[in-house]
Design a protein around this nucleic acid. Sequence first.
DNA 1: GTCTATATACAGATAGAC
DNA 2: GTCTATCTGTATATAGAC
Lengths: 199, 199
Amino acid sequence: MNEAAPQGERTRDRILTTAALLFSQNGYDHTPLSHVAREAGVSKALILWHFDSKEDLFRAALGRTLEPYRIDADAIAGLDAARQIERLVDLYVAFVSDNGYSVRFIVDLMVRHSAPDEVRRQVHDLYGMFRELLTGAIARGRDSGEFRPDTRPDLEAALIVTTLAGILMERFLEDTDQKEPTDELLRHLKRTTLERLSV
Amino acid sequence: MNEAAPQGERTRDRILTTAALLFSQNGYDHTPLSHVAREAGVSKALILWHFDSKEDLFRAALGRTLEPYRIDADAIAGLDAARQIERLVDLYVAFVSDNGYSVRFIVDLMVRHSAPDEVRRQVHDLYGMFRELLTGAIARGRDSGEFRPDTRPDLEAALIVTTLAGILMERFLEDTDQKEPTDELLRHLKRTTLERLSV
DNA sequence: GTCTATATACAGATAGAC
DNA sequence: GTCTATCTGTATATAGAC
């Protein structure tokens, strides 16, 4: 027997994982507790014993949904500035590709202004951290002479992340999950950015 | 008496307008018919006499919501290519500023894949038309010698609209309706684009 | 065309046995 | 901790009078 994970905890955990999945797939309003109960193999009453309300379950499940949302700054260590920028762009695109459902769900919450403040702040911070990484890479490239001396790292970084946000948006607007046109656009973004920055 | 607009038609129209507003403000799921009825000054039953179902009302109301969504190609006539690009960018930003609620609503429908096919197609077409206007302006600039001869109008236009989509996205991600940072970003977008295209 | 009253369904949440 | 049974509110939709 595993003393650290009694039955109740494991059941609670299964409810949480199930809820996180169903909420991100169907949305809060279209995920009745009965559905979560069925998929998790428990009764509605048990869910409401573990969590005070559906809203409470939702907030707890959001933690699961946001688990993969983190930035690994080490991933760009040891590269020159230009390569760091390219790598950050690729990491962004890879992330939204790998987390389609949940990214769509979180974006939906943000667009509808129905994300809890904590989530809103978390997303905001991640966005800021990513932009900071870009800003830092551009600043180092400028200071090392790799980029033009009149480069404005913050503004350039802001333009890049905005365009990436646009790529995300367009992915949602398209029904088909085509990636080929986006790839060409991505190459164009990276190329024009580096051409503009380079001396 | 106005023979062309009997009482029933005017009431139906008021229901439709009220519904379009409330749906775009609060969303479909959080707009009960009782709310529409109260705001429109009629009974729930009357709404369901005019429209077969809530879903039917919703589809009809979407027409109202999309009414302002159109592109006036004449607005850029007589300008040189660079000025046309700047003007199109400004028109885009002005539109999303003037139609905050409904743009947010439509985007939400698209993100959640819950827009009727007709609406999805309509938005897609508008997006395509706007990109076409940009593509045309860039192509004319290239052919007139104003822009570099190796310019690829379609790719450049795609990059611009993607960045604009990103600006829209970021406006949703921010809680505050600040516009100052966006303005600086917009200027940077226009300036870098034109610098890249110009000979 | 417009209303009041009602049918029907289903959601979240609670009571209480085990 | 987990269940079945039930309460309670609210939503869409219908019936039928005016």
